[in-house]
Design a protein around this nucleic acid. Structure first.
Length: 645
DNA sequence: GTTTCGGTTCTTTTT
DNA sequence: GAACCGAAAC
């Protein structure tokens, strides 16, 4: 199949797609066809004779990678299939599974999600006798650890900074950190950060492995480069060291992940790092009407230290974005609902509209109102599909089968039994020498014996699953394991435990289906840990692509576009968030977030500015309009006032 | 000594 | 909605 690059791309895109070998930086402003450019670049390489399995495509979500691959396949055909595409974590995990032993892990290591991490740290704090009202909470500790790892600083230094004004011994925090590191090793488990750092360590320390991958990846493409942290930066640098064909795409204006160690200076400094780098700019915006782009251009102009880029509109004049002043959250909801119904009457599908916000809780009262008015919506909630209690319960049994040292899953599983709490679990866990192997009959009998009377009958049922796994090699059939677990035990448990049983039961059914596409437990568990909210949602309901309004945080809406966008709670303290303003360069990052949200809109943008919020205690909190709205030139906006404020 | 239950409090952003 | 705490129940 011949591809007509000249006609299907504009001059800016074409230049980037046809860039020669060597390092390339593509500065792609919002809505300028960044994805298109990457897809055509892949097609261009494959058509030029580069075998697809020598190309590496690193993206921000696995979904993005899949979409790009699908589009590339449409262009060039099945020969793109061997291409490696996915997130950094995905790639690192794949490399580690093949080489984990070199780092002292077993290949069946578990991946800890944030819930597991929290449980682990909580236990350590208790064990070290540090539990005290003034001692930082597990979440805070974990964010310090993670930030230190991802910015390659000492935990000590980050903690010193973070707790400057708190009466906390930094030494204690470091002790918790070391204990946490030890415990993970003992559990044969890695957290998200370990996956990246261990992969980097492996490549740095092992010449043979390093050279194998350096040889293999002749072309490396990196999407969203502005959101890479220094570990990811080093990974790319290392993998590209031999062939030096590294093409990175990004937009420093859209860097919104510095709180997890991302550093937009990676993209700013790319041309210094690679002196022979070719630089291309994409500035022609096909997405938004000029009125929206004016707002976007103006809001970002004040941020220092950036590549100068200007969004150029090609679309026709339309109308300026609205600033909507309302009283409280309910009036905000009323306005939005009216507008949505109006748009719907004009024939705009619901799924062309989005309601975006800074933090998940901003959307709560709106959800109630949407439900009441029967407006269909989908929400990417804060809790990920695979991290909901009932899903984790069902996965615990698979995880303990897979990794016998997985204490967290063992605890979780046994904790479901009646009359069994943390103490009993620990007693049993120690009794079997902290290893529960399905194949070890003695261990299984020991558990049986130690089980309190009340729990014995239930345990016997669950043990039957282990027996089946052992005898009939159910490891190849994750779907069957979950089915049995649910059938024999969990369904009944869920009826008694959850007041929203029907929904949870549906989720379990979906999980059983979802597992069906994996041939081994191993494969499924790998996928499980690294799948994002958006992807899980796709997986569970691909057949029911409903027409519904999307509710999402701005972070999760990255890369998406909608005809109409409503932005909630544009007040100082909510957006920009009060906490981020206390951080170094916090305001700049919030402003970039505002830039990201404005550039999601194609036709109409509604900036919602409530003036007060009722609090739990009955008091009322008043807000000033967001500085990001105030700094805009009034002539760029249309003002709407609604309700009492 | 443990588990379970009920009431209270709080919400940044995520691979 | 879920995490935490204290008190009742086993």
């Amino acid at each position: 199949m011949h591809i007509d690059f000249e006609n299907e791309l504009n001059a800016e895109q074409l230049a980037a797609v046809k860039a020669g070998d060597g390092p390339v930086l593509v500065l792609a402003a919002a809505g300028t066809g960044k994805t298109r450019t990457l897809v055509y670049r892949v097609a261009y390489l494959v058509e030029g004779g580069v075998p697809a399995d020598h190309i590496l495509l690193l993206t921000f979500t696995n979904k993005a990678a899949r979409e790009m691959l699908d589009r590339a396949r449409e262009l060039v055909g099945p020969q793109v299939s061997g291409l490696w595409g996915g997130t950094f974590h995905h790639l690192a995990n794949r490399i580690l599974r093949r080489n984990a032993e070199a780092l002292g892990y077993q290949v069946d290591y578990s991946i800890l999600d944030s819930d597991d991490q929290r449980t682990l740290v909580k236990r350590i704090v208790e064990e070290l006798g540090l539990k005290d009202k003034s001692f930082p909470k597990p979440d805070v500790l974990l964010s310090v650890f993670s930030y230190a790892v991802n910015t390659e600083q000492l935990v000590e230094d980050v903690a010193m900074d973070r707790f400057e004004n708190h009466p906390v011994e930094v030494g204690d925090i470091v002790r918790v950190y070391h204990a946490y590191e030890d415990r993970k090793k003992n559990l044969n488990a890695m957290d998200f950060d370990d996956i990246l750092t261990n992969c980097l360590m492996l490549l740095e320390g092992n010449e043979k492995v390093r050279e194998r991958y350096q040889e293999r990846f002749r072309y490396i493409l990196v999407d969203e480069y502005q959101d890479t942290n220094s570990i990811q930066y080093k990974l790319v640098e290392l993998l590209a060291a031999k062939h030096r064909n590294v093409l990175v795409v990004g937009d420093d204006f859209q860097s919104i992940y510095s709180w997890r160690g991302a550093d937009f200076r990676n993209i700013i400094n790319f041309p210094d790092k690679y002196e022979d780098a070719q630089v291309y700019k994409l500035e022609t915006n096909y997405r938004s009407v000029p009125e929206i782009l004016n707002v976007a251009n103006e809001c970002i102009a004040g941020n220092p230290e950036q590549f100068q880029k200007e969004l150029r509109a090609v679309r026709e004049q339309h109308r300026p974005p609205y600033v909507v002043r309302v009283g409280d959250g309910n009036q905000q909801a009323d306005y939005i609902i009216d507008k949505i119904q109006e748009y719907a009457r004009e024939g705009r599908p619901y799924n062309d509209m989005a309601i975006l916000y800074r933090s998940h809780f901003h959307a709560m009262e709106l959800q109630l109102n949407l439900t009441r008015q029967r407006i269909p919506y989908v929400i990417t909630s804060g809790v990920r599909f695979f991290e909901q209690a009932h899903i984790k319960d069902a996965c615990a049994i698979m995880r303990i089968i897979h990794n016998p040292a997985d204490e967290l899953s063992f605890t979780r599983l046994l904790g479901l039994l009646p009359g069994v709490g943390p103490k009993t679990v620990m007693k049993i866990w120690n009794l079997i020498d902290q290893r529960f192997s399905v194949a070890n009959l003695t261990a299984r009998l020991k558990v049986q014996d130690a089980m309190p009377k009340k729990a014995k009958p239930t345990w016997e049922k669950i043990d039957r699953i282990f027996q089946l796994v052992d005898e009939e090699n159910l490891r190849k059939n994750p779907s069957e394991i979950v089915f049995l677990f649910n059938d024999i035990f969990y369904d009944q448990y869920a009826i008694e435990t959850f007041d929203n049983y029907p929904r949870r039961s549906e989720d379990i059914e979906e999980l059983i289906n979802y597992c069906g596409q994996f041939d081994t437990l191993d494969e499924f568990l790998n996928e499980l840990a690294l799948v994002t909210n958006l992807e899980a949602e796709d997986a569970k309901g691909s057949e029911q692509q409903e027409d519904a309004v999307r509710l999402s945080t701005i972070h999760q809406a990255k890369g998406l576009e909608f005809g109409v966008v409503f932005v909630l709670w544009l007040t100082d303290g909510m957006f920009p968030s009060g906490r981020s303003l206390e951080e170094l360069e916090g305001e700049s990052e919030e402003r970039r977030l505002f830039y990201v949200v404005t550039t999601r809109a194609k036709d109409d943008l509604h900036l919602m500015v409530p003036s007060y919020r009722r609090q739990r205690d009955g008091g009322v909190q008043y807000y000033n309009p967001s500085r990001f709205v105030q700094e805009l030139d009034e002539t760029l906006l249309s003002e709407v006032e609604r309700g009492y404020f």
